[in-house]
Amino acid sequence: MSEEHFVIIGNGPAANEAALTLRERDSKARITIVGQELKGQYKPHLLPDFIAGAIEEDDLYLTGPAFFKERNIKLRLGQKVVGADFRGGWIILEHKEIIPFSGLIIATGARPRIPETVQIFEDLMLTLKTPADAKVWIDRLSEVDSVVLVGGDLVSLSVTDALVSLGKRVNFVIDEESFWPVPFSYEIREQVARRLVARGVRVLSGCRLMRVRRLSATSLEVVTDCETLHAGILGAFFGLIPNVKFLSRTGLDIERGILVDEHLKTRFDHVYAAGDCAQVYHPAIRNYWVSIGYENARLLGRIAALNLLGGKFTVEVARESIFRMDSIRVNTSWWMEL
């Protein structure tokens, strides 16, 4: 076991849980986490609180480098994977370094999705995924007092709370293109809209974002098919898509995310994927589903690690909780907390 080198790509909840699990079960193997972001693992669900000013930046971070050093897990931050040779058993970093592995878990997570129809306005929109993003929000919010949020996912609701607590005027456009947690029905939409209104938010339900134009340094014109709005910031919350572009020519099966079997294994032995970047096969529906969310990611990370070490665990997901959204299937079993 001592010649083993387990490599994990990513530094989010799935990656960290996988690393810890591997170390629990194998005290001798080399374990390396390669993460693109410079700073360590953070709690994404606290980002809106950070924006609201309720917590400090340091409170966002989970564990310091000492935590990993104690467990003899090598943490490589700010280093980007650009390619891989799964059969040969190595990954390639941006600075032309080759890292051989005997086992690999890809846990690169997902990033905010901008629908194709409005991708040309991407530069004018703010998303929220990382502490760096949050800092941009904080920076811009100091100069504006009105925000338009488009889309609708769990994060957007927390962000709304944060904005309201800061005294900003919020217009919320519930866009049909968005990645809404439950099947769209008029009742659910109205329920959500009422909740938002109760928080002091103006809701435009069932509208679609058409165009965005910058009027000045602190003012945007947001055109929907319902009406035209003016705001200082346009926030895009259309859900997340997996970070897998860098793997596009490596032979992995990729649809939206990396396709893995119910044990989270890719088509290559010793290569697993877990968390937001994976699409997991469900034998009951004979199709793949994506799981989004902190707790799910941790669970998948753990399972991928156990299976890499020879286990045969699967994710317990009731087929009823898998919904088809925007051409992919989503496990939303834990999302019932509106």
Partner: peptide
Amino acid sequence: SNPPVYLNEKQSVAAAVEPGMTL
């Protein structure tokens, strides 16, 4: 960041640094 040849893990300083260091 773009050496003329590929490096393996042992040859790369990026592999040797600790997380607190800035590459």
